[in-house]
Design a binder for these strands. Sequence first.
DNA 1: TTCCAGGGATATA
DNA 2: TATATCCATGGA
Length: 260
Amino acid sequence: MITFNSEYFDAAATVACGQLFRYHAEGEGYRIYAGKNTALVATAGAVTTVEGDDDFFRIYFDLDTDYKEIAARCAAFPEVGEVAVRGRGIRILRQDLFETLISFILSANNNIPRIQGIIERLCAQYGDDMGGYHAFPRPEQLKDVRAERYRALGAGFRDAYVAETVRAVLEGGLEGIEAADTAEAGRRLCAFKGVGRKVADCILLFGLGRTDVYPVDTWIFKAHRTAALDTPEKVRAYCLERYGAWSGYVQQYIYYDKRG
DNA sequence: TTCCAGGGATATA
DNA sequence: TATATCCATGGA
């Protein structure tokens, strides 16, 4: 059990800002699933408790990073100040790379409840039975799964993307990517079927801990759209230039403000 | 009925 | 490089 006393960790904000798809309300908090692990996380006042594998979840919830400093640096941008205060309890989750890759391929042109359903069925079908829940499947467990099976889970047109990406991962597509700089890692991620700019940026942020990225989805685009910033790519370039290494955090604060 | 969802691939010019 | 079209599916 981890007890973390800080207003810079809020369970609800952290699970509801679209990083994570495997969670549901339980008791006073949230049951989450990550890889083969599960935890019950709850915030009461300024105290957050995590019931699960302490070593795993200390890293997962990024507990050794100073989010007071992060929120302050983001709030220093005038247009971000308010939302950074409101979203100060968000932690950027250190999620498994393969799980993040597959999950965000499934997120393309999709809505969150449906994404969650597809992922749950994927885990139930192919993940290890952990006794009461299922782990996210490892690449080897999906080795011989054909696209039609993903279609049967509800993946829709993303079925072939998943099948093709699993094959590419098994051929070593993710090897060494952690050591690459953000630009190079992004290029490598975009080489997977079903991974474009936005999905790659989500994987960089949530699966590789890179904060010098700015994922632009429909909500973020609407939040920034002006006569000058009239395409997602222009919004992305502008925000990366402006927010630099704080981009990922700023993006989460704004996404949470619009959606959470 | 149409629109939308944490978009991307492909064809075309 | 920029634009147009298609891609499943379920909820609003």
